[in-house]
Structure formats: C-alpha cells, structure tokens
Design a protein around this nucleic acid. Structure first.
Lengths: 350, 350
DNA sequence: CTGAAAGCGCTAACAG
DNA sequence: CTGTTAGCGCTTTCAG
C-alpha cells in the first residue's frame, strides 16, 4: 500500500564546489586545493580567508572528483559470501568500523557463493577505483583474484590463506583452535569425544581437526574417523550429527563442532532427545557469534577474533597502498576459549 | 604476527578507458559513449567495431567519472544504528541484494547511535553523489534529514515514519503486530498475559502495545499497566522482565516481547528458573530474526517483512530519482504470525 | 606564495 | 550518423 499525500516542491540546493570557495575568498581554485590538502605553502592570511569561505559555504570536497583525479576512490570493497551468516556479519561490522575510523567508506557485497555475482561485484569495485578489497572466503578458484592483482589493486584475503598465490591474507591459527577445544574437553575428564567438522575440502577444517585429534592422542585417547562427522557449517548438519552419533550405539559425553551454528544444532537436537547439557553431553562451538550468550545453556566456544582480523586486513590494504607496491604477507591470529555453560566435568549428573 | 615472505613486483596494468576503445575502433569517444549508453543513432557497422574493441579491451566505464559527470554515483547509501543488531542485519542484507539486482552498489554505515558519526557518514554519502539514502531508525532529531532533503537527495526512512516531516517512509503496521500477538495468545486460552515493550518514547512501541491491549480488552481481559514492563529491546531487559513479573506474586502464563532479543531473554530466564516453555509459560517474540529457529524451544514470533520493506524503500528511492522531484509517500507493510514451539495452549502441562 | 592550464574518464549539446 | 567541444570537481605541474 503506497499513498502519496502531497508533493512537496524541493529547493534543490547544489553543494558548494571548490570554485564557489575560490570565488568567495577571492583566490584561485588551486590555492583552495592547497589549503585543503597540504595546508603548507600558503600565506596565513589567505589561508584564513579560504578557511572562512569553506566554513561559510559548508564546503566538502566532492569524493568522486577527488577519486577520479587521484585514482583512489577512498573506498574499501568488502566481499562476503553471505551477510546473514552470523560469522560474516561480524566481519562486515568490524571492517566498516575500522574503515570509518580511518576515513574510508566501504561498499559491501554478498556473493551468495555465485561466481558470476562475485565477478560482477569485483568489476564494480575496480571501476570505482577502490583503495583495496577485503575478500572473505574466496572460492579456491582464483581467477578473479588474479584479475584484481593485475589491476594493481590491493587485496587481502580474510579467513582463508592462499599461500601459493602469494596473496596477503589474515588467517586464524586453526590448528590451535582444534587443540584448545580438545584440551578443554580433556581437562573436564571427557574420554568419549566427538567432532563435527565443516567440509573437509576446506583446509581450515582439516587443520582444526588435526589439532583436535593431536591433543586427544597426546592424552592417550583415540579418535577414530567414525567419531567424526563431516557437516557443512549449517545448523541442520549439527542436528543430523547427533543422530549419527546416537546411531552407532557407542556412548559419548562431549562434542566439538567446528562452528557455532552446528553446535547450536547439536544442542537443540540433544535437548529435544531429552539429553541434558552439560550434565550428559558437553558441547563446544567455534567462532563465538553473539547467539552463544543468548541460548540456554549458553555455549562454550572458541573465540574467533573477527575484529582484530579486520583491523589487520585493513592495515595490510593501507600498507599496499603506500609506496613499494603490494607486499606479500600473512598475518596469523590466535583463538582462545570462552567458557560458558554448555560444558561441564564428565560424570557429574546433578 | 606478520611475516613478509617475499615481495612480488606487480604488473600494474591500467584499466582500459573510453579513449582506448575509441582509438582501437577508430572512432571518437562520443561514439563509443553512444554505443554504451543508448545504442541508437549509431551505424551498425561502427557499433560492431566498437563493441569488438570493448570486448577485446574488457572495457568497463569508470563509475567515478560517470558519477561525477552525471551527478549520480549509482550508489545507495544505507545507514543503520548497529549492524550487529539482528534486526538490522536483515535490512543490510536485503538492501544490498535489491540494490545489486538493479545495478547499484551500496555503501553501508553504522552510526552506533552517535549523532556525530551519523552526520559524518551522511556528508560522505552526499559527497559521493549517491542516488539515495536509506535510513533506518533515525533519531527523532531530524536536522540531518533536512540537510539531505535540501541537497535534493532522495531519502527513505525505514521502520519509523516521520510523517510530520513529509519524508518518504516504509513502516510496519505496528498496531496490527500487537493485535496478532495478543490474538494468538488469547486463542490459546491464556488469560494472564504480560507484555515487555521497547522504550515507550518510541511511537512504534506504543502502537504495538495499543494493538496488544485492544485485543485483550475486546476479549474481556484486563491488562493493567503493572502487567507491562518497559524494556529497551535488549536481551538483558527480557531477563529482567521475568524477574519483575515473578516479583508481584500474580501468576502469568504468557508473555509477548516487542522484539525477539527480549523474548530470548525471557526464555532463558524462565528456563533458568525452572519454568517450562511452553507448558508453563508461552512466549511470543517479534521480528522473526534467524535465531528464532535455532533455540530450544524455537520461538513463536511476529514476522517483520524486512525484505519487502527494503524493496519498497528502494522503489521509493528510484521513484524520487525520476522526474518530478521527491514524492511524499508512506508505505505500510503487514506483519504476520509465525507459530513455532514457544507457545502452547493454556493449562496443558505435559 | 599564488594563478593558469591541463587532465582524470565520461556525457551531452552542438555542428556538420 | 559522427566528431568536436565543453565541463562535471578536483589535483598537480609549471610559471611567475
């Protein structure tokens, strides 16, 4: 339902341009440009006049003109597969905040894992002379990345390192994440431990699993492949995993899911089946998305430092914008455990 | 930890410009521009040559130049108070998708409810010749809105109508939302019904409450002010509300929270206190954020049509971009109930 | 210290 | 149908 009560004629005032400022202060545009940009090399008296005119006209340099001329749009492009994904929204948020603090705007695009959308979006960014592109979760297919690099546009991959490509990346120490979760569970006395992974085609999932198993082994526990279910990072695959674990008849007292969404699925399914958490089953997640605190029981998880990640990514972009062309760099960030209510000592049934 | 394995010298290939295309196809830039934009008025043979050159060079018009020249940056600005807020992320997502489908990019900014950030961000958008601004949750203070309108930049307010200002808006039928939730509860046989509102300074919260109470009255039920707790849309205020309700000694069997976050707080607190949901207490939320499905029990709620809202907002922007200047319009969208597991019939204790 | 001039890449009259 | 010209708003030599 759309209604149009009335039409209001608009003033349509134009924004002041550098010309207007020049005219009002009685100098040339280049002088105005000087006081805006370097401030130096300008007589104090004329500068004051210009500044006064700028204030009076509320002049703000047009960013398109500036970007066109300077070849840099003062924009950061951010590409994520899915904004609604609880992990990515943290990236969006942090990137925007970091960029704003540094005087950049950010254009956000979500590819929905569609390579065509992805490429279209990248083209748009390139056509806007972006200062850099922050790329979250690329398909391993790296054609588009090559394109970006060829255009000499700084790029940073977040969350997934493409070392062989020599592309600057910010990644989590995924092996350590796996270790942390196993350690927590082992310390609580659990011996029948399960793991729900993301797709094992993704190297970070394999890394996490490796860390997890290593700790179990170091503690004399086994973790046969049968104790592992491969999920897809989605809620439902967590639910399904519980069914799988129950099927095989063997008991289990603890599960680690390689992301929080699956952990939520696990919790929901367990509760539905009448299993108590953490009294009968301890559950650990991974990512530390905001929901963790909102459910009952709240979810013990491995914190993924999204904010630091985005700050680092931004730093790498800026660094590439400086002289010397792009640097090849990989920043490795460390996860840590956040203990909440979904985990408890083995065998304590209150 | 940052390491720099090696430095790779870059090619730094420039993007092809319209000049390059003109040169390669042996025509003038204006002809190239013609084939790109209107296609008409160009001889078929020359058009083909131009097209070939465009393909060969992978030419894509620079968006900054285009925007500078045409006074329109082909960009939509989106302003939300907090991206991490589960309701707003839906707005971000839908706006971006809608904009992309129509060939626009979107610059997202979150104000964190800081008026200075808000103004700074708006200035940035204006300086980029945005085609329009989608504004979610403005402070009632409308100075900035005036500014935008003065610049003749289309604007649409999402989620909160400022009718007196004559600014195009897309709003929910909040009164109806209140009615729906009460109706659902009444139909389930509940008579001791409570409500946790958002800040009653916000008109939409008052509207929702009015609808809620009207239905109760129509059904011969009372809803004294004491049965209502004013929250702040945050998780914790939902938890606190339960404590308040328990304090006064009167029984209650159902609660409506004016947003899902507070409903989650209610559920968590109830479960912690050992109250069963929905057997002892039915809980209805509002917004239908994604978490609703992920908790146990899943949350019955009033669906807020974010996607339709954003589509409508976009439509209003585009319409204003057309001739005739801005139109004053208010679009009203309808909510609906989504029944899940947090509500059940009164008195049925399984 | 300051102004004039050129040009970033594109579009839009205006001639031809 | 096509090329020339001018200019969007800004920065940056280059003179002076």
């Amino acid at each position: 339902m759309v209604t149009f009560p009335e039409t209001i004629p608009q003033a349509g005032i134009e924004m002041a341009s550098i010309k207007d400022v020049a005219k009002l202060s009685g100098v040339s545009v280049s002088t105005v440009s000087r006081v805006i940009n370097r401030g130096a090399d300008v007589d104090n008296r004329t500068r004051d006049r210009v500044l006064a005119a700028i204030a009076k006209l509320e002049y703000k340099p047009n960013l398109l003109a500036k970007g066109l001329r300077g070849k840099k749009g003062n924009i950061i492009g951010l590409i994520v597969p899915e904004i609604l994904d609880h992990a990515f929204v943290s990236i969006v948020d942090s990137t925007i905040d970091t960029a704003h603090e540094n005087g950049y705007n950010v254009i956000v695009g979500s590819t929905h894992n569609d390579p065509d959308l992805e490429e279209k979006f990248i083209d748009d960014l390139l056509r806007r002379n972006v200062n850099g592109i922050v790329f979250s979760r690329v398909s391993d297919e790296s054609r588009v990345l090559k394109k970006i690099q060829k255009m000499n546009v700084p790029i940073v991959i977040i969350d997934r390192a493409l070392e062989k490509e020599g592309i600057p990346s910010v990644v989590l120490d995924n092996y350590e994440a796996g270790r942390l979760s196993a350690q927590h569970l082992v310390e609580l006395g659990h011996r029948e431990v399960r793991c729900v992974t993301g797709s094992l085609k993704i190297s970070l999932c394999r890394d996490r699993l490796r860390g997890f198993k290593d700790v179990l082994r170091e503690n004399g526990l086994e973790c046969p492949d049968a104790d592992t279910v491969e999920g897809d990072f989605k809620f439902k695959s967590g639910m399904d995993a519980v069914d799988r674990f129950c099927e095989d008849g063997k008991r289990f007292s603890a599960v680690w899911a390689q992301n929080d969404m699956m952990a939520l699925g696990i919790i929901k399914r367990c509760l539905t089946k009448g299993m108590r958490i953490p009294e009968e089953v301890s559950v650990v997640g991974m990512d530390d998305i905001s929901i963790c605190e909102y459910i009952a029981p709240s979810l013990t998880t491995i914190h993924y430092p999204f904010k630091e990640m985005c700050e680092k990514a931004f730093e790498l972009i800026v660094r590439q914008n400086g002289e010397g062309g792009p640097e090849d760099a990989i920043a490795l960030l460390e996860p840590y455990l956040v203990k909440r209510d979904s985990t408890g000592p083995f065998g304590v049934k209150t």
